[in-house]
Design a protein around this nucleic acid. Structure first.
Lengths: 353, 353
DNA sequence: CCAATTTACGTGTACGTTAACGTAAATATA
DNA sequence: TATATTTACGTTAACGTACACGTAAATTGG
């Protein structure tokens, strides 16, 4: 049933045409030294002419090498299970390609501790890898790390949040600005003129703001261009445990009462819990991510909309992208924006991360 | 940088432990004849104990075989460009795996002609393949074809619309019932009590109804359980060109005027065109698929909602699934429902098929 | 009981590539 | 000029598996 491979296109066909041995051809292909410029050129011409594609399987077999990929992402915390999904995607991809000479090592850092990020990043450099998949949550530390990666010729793919001009192989994740913009757009169904929106950032490390700020920017931009009459306020909550969120919101809600709250990340469930415990009704709530705790508040109507951007797929595609790059760098799309999915009470049961 | 493969887990390790030659082990693994029951059992035990996984790359190299996959899908017609997207997904997947000993041949049939389906299916059987990716648009013909596939031990994956009890390796596509159900749910934003819904089926071959009927069923089911006061009517339009659609609708709209029209497939743009040309306003319109012509009517407000179910991903995942199955049948998820995405004027620009 | 056949293995080559090793010829060094 | 070194190649053994072929031993048939 299976058809025989008919074309002789191989290293030895090239050798025959160039009147050299396969060893020499091999040297040219892997551009090692020891080939005279003339023969090298001649061989390269033939390679181009034949449109020679090395047999990856034979290559993997012969070089007893395994492509080593490191993934550096936040650990799943008890405050948010968000990173479960990308992790699942990474594992799915890893198991699909493990038969093809790839090994994937996972490194986790604590979202509340830059030092853990620095330590794990250093560990990755020490242990030696061929490629890195990274969630650059801490901007400055990530930039430092990526600079070192570039020094070591270590290609990397970013997921979940992008950095500019880091010459990443690819970015897989949301278009953060558009994400915030669309969130603002959703308020069309929830707000009337002259009403007030409160933007709530809940994150400990200021650096995450790079991520959140872009969303915020998109969010504000929409109102700026479309609904100038809406009042926008903003609060940063720097401790992520519920008690702190509760305390901050309680103070805030003493003096004023917004008509809509936009939480810029998955911690929207903390706000929802506050609403429920404090019997705050009629305040619309928009946030991020398909997490069990969020879905529960969506079900009971405390949360109106959740925006979700395929976290599992981000992990899957991120890993696949760095792998594809290591095999054949030309194949990989540099910018892989995830769709911006809107989840409501009505459609959440059909959603797949 | 790349790490050496440390474990000896290979055919020859097994041979050593079983005190036989690699030839005998090979016979057991590929269960060929010529091994005594005792040794066979002994070898199998060792294989199980070592959790031996054959090296796929070495296998592909040694057997000069190429996995041959055939894809049988509708040709892109000038009436609807829908099948462009799955085709793109198939090609994307094909180019990703072509380096791994896979060849993919495309076969196209005409959605308006059962005979072309029969002919192409026969051609596939004649040409000999290891696996088939199929869009079973014509139910009876597909069932015949799949029976022959089963006879020939030819595994297949279905995309876009499912068939029951055909022992497919996998189905990749929408949950049609849920898709219709969600469409009905959307009417919540568009309809009031006692109003009328018109379901429009536009397709030439009655067999496609298998596909469309399930959507219709889901659609009706929603109203049955949630909004009993809505009146539902239905019309089948058996010619797919615009003139026929126009003629049918014109007659229909002489006597009555529904409040909402639900078109069960991507040909919703024909209805939209009719609305626009006839200056019909205030009739809500829901249909399927992210096609340029549909998007244009979405933009100008003629179409209210489009439902889309990742057609490109269907092609991609469908091909990957049959490939994965041929490599290692255990890995493939049997039911791969696509998300049910809702596209509106507001978010269409962020959508990716 | 001996020959013919079948069973149950072992052996060797091939797949396309890598990489270590070998070796003439060219060049540099004394 | 003789020797040492470098350059530019060729040769060969792997990598893990498939498969054709060879061959003892076991079984069958007469």
């Amino acid at each position: 049933m299976k058809k025989e491979q008919e074309n002789n296109k191989g290293i030895k066909e090239i050798a025959k045409l160039a009147k050299v041995s396969i060893g020499t051809v091999d040297r040219v292909i892997n551009n090692r030294t020891g080939v005279s410029p003339k023969t090298k050129e001649r061989i390269l011409e033939i390679i181009a002419e034949l449109d020679y594609q090395p047999n990856i399987m034979a290559r993997m077999l012969a070089s007893k090498k395994v492509i080593k990929i490191a993934a550096l992402i936040p650990a799943v915390s008890n405050e948010t299970g968000y990173w479960n999904a990308p992790l699942k995607g990474i594992n799915e991809a890893a198991s699909e390609i493990k038969n093809f000479g790839v090994s994937v090592d996972l490194y986790f850092f604590d979202q509340n501790s830059k030092q853990t990020f620095i330590d794990q990043a250093a560990l990755i450099l020490r242990n030696g890898y061929d490629g890195v998949l990274l969630a650059p949550m801490f901007e400055n530390e990530a930039i430092d790390f990526l600079a070192q990666c570039r020094e070591n010729n270590l290609p990397f793919v970013l997921i979940n949040s992008d950095l500019e001009n880091q010459s990443q192989v690819a970015y897989v994740g949301p278009d953060l600005f558009q994400s915030g913009y669309l969130a603002a757009h959703l308020t069309k169904y929830l707000l009337q003129a002259e009403q007030t929106v409160l933007i709530v950032n809940i994150s400990r490390e200021i650096d995450l703001h790079h991520h959140l700020l872009k969303k915020e920017e998109g969010f504000k931009n929409y109102f700026h261009t479309h609904r100038n009459s809406i009042h926008i306020e903003k609060v940063d909550i720097k401790e992520t445990d519920y008690q702190s969120v509760q305390k901050n919101l309680r103070e805030l809600f003493l003096s004023k009462r917004p008509d809509l709250v936009f939480v810029t990340n998955s911690r929207v469930s903390s706000v929802a819990r506050f609403f429920q415990e404090t019997n705050i009704e009629g305040v619309k709530l928009i946030g991020y991510d398909f997490l069990e705790e969020n879905i529960n508040y969506l079900k009971n109507g405390t949360i109106d909309f959740l925006i979700c951007q395929k976290p599992q797929e981000q992990g899957y595609k991120g890993l696949m992208s760095i792998y594809q790059h290591l095999l054949n760098s030309s194949l990989v799309e540099q910018l892989q924006y995830m769709p911006i999915d809107i989840i409501t009470k009505e459609n959440y049961s059909y959603y797949r991360n």
